[in-house]
Design a protein around this nucleic acid. Structure first.
Lengths: 131, 131, 131, 131
DNA sequence: GTGGTCTAGACCACT
DNA sequence: GTGGTCTAGACCACG
């Protein structure tokens, strides 16, 4: 888990998002054990308290559950995971559409912009660019 | 200018964005005078220092210019305004696409999601306008 | 003995309370044999160490006694059992009254609240039993 | 605000409860400013981080709101405060009734126990006992 | 001055 | 070993 942090967003939020992504994309499955506070802190070279906070928040969102003395696990409720994916996508979508409208773009224009972006993106990928 | 602030983003940034929108959408035209620090602070019921900072930043981005003794004005360079619009749209787009990909969506799926959202959105608007 | 554990309270405490209840309510009588550490651990699907600790504590409180080579038994002193019941009820009562007073409830109000709750509760039970 | 802490419960929870009580009992009113993190930490002689955590939790429960750069305030929604009082009383009640039933007490017996306790309590108060 | 975040390091209870 | 809590102290952005 190589990771660089963006200074504008709190580290614990960035890790939350990263873990959520891993779950949503299936790299972490329901019921999987996640690393311990100490392990992850060592790996990311950040303070254990920061990881602790990440996990606390994930637990509050019921994405992760603690089994005392044993460790933390991805929630085994698949429905919860689908809900997270939908919520995250919905947030992105809403923010994007609203933003574009506030800049004066109409519905059709927004669709066009996206189409164009997606096309470019796939072209780029075919040429093996990734930065 | 009724305005509620989102606690996650600095107020001065929110005002900056609001003013940029007004300009991009043509509600404020190149060369228009903008309110004074005191006026805007009173209207928004916030600290004048915060407004001051907003204007400073807008000036740094060359969106606004100060004429000493007269007040502040929207830049008269139309090109600059177009550039801002492109930049803001580009930022929104980039963040959205990247986010969706991180959730595991493919290019085509993203286009579909957008199409659907735009359609719903225009349907809603025809039924009940509330903004 | 199906059992779900509450994450806020140590498991060994929860089992202690459960066993105490069984004794106080007469489901376990003075002199009865209680399950072995291994049996109970298997049944509850928890670590034998945790059960061991439960029994240790119960022994310290003289609620349970060990007969070497034979197993553990509920104390045969009936007085002890009555004492436990009083103590547990007293704790509950004290915590409840103090809590209600801290919320600003007066003595009479507390009595009323209880009357109401008890009434509702018995009504509910007559309609649908589910535990 | 003299305060002694009970070692069994996290300090930040104890402070949360204390503040909730102050609000429910009207010692802190909707819209009142509450002490800053540093102030309260100094007064209680605990670490600012601990107070910070208290306030974070209160905010998450929407009992307190932050105005950036200005400080924290008791929510101005009176309904929220009533809801808290009800919730806290309901929790106490539920725990008490359930506990008593688990000890084998019937509805009427519970009412009697409470009546007795309340009576003793008021007798004690008339004699000016408070410890 | 205010809150928000992070680091460093410690102690404790639980399994 | 695991997580939970707390202290001490620092830095930063915001108003």
């Amino acid at each position: 888990m190589g990771m660089e942090f963006d200074n504008n967003l709190p580290i614990y939020i960035q890790i939350m998002n990263y873990i959520k992504q891993e779950i949503v994309m299936g790299k972490l499955s329901p019921g999987d054990k996640i690393p311990s506070v100490r392990e992850l802190a060592a790996e990311l070279r950040i303070n254990p308290n920061t990881v602790q906070r990440t996990f606390q928040e994930l637990e509050r969102e019921e994405i992760v559950e603690t089994r005392r003395g044993l460790g933390r696990y991805v929630t085994s409720e698949e429905a919860k995971i689908m809900a997270i994916k939908k919520e995250m996508a919905g947030d992105l979508l809403e923010r994007f559409i609203r933003g574009m409208q506030e800049l004066g773009f109409k519905g059709e224009e927004i669709v066009d912009v996206i189409k164009e972006a997606v096309q470019e993106d796939s072209v780029l990928k075919n040429k093996n660019r990734n930065v």
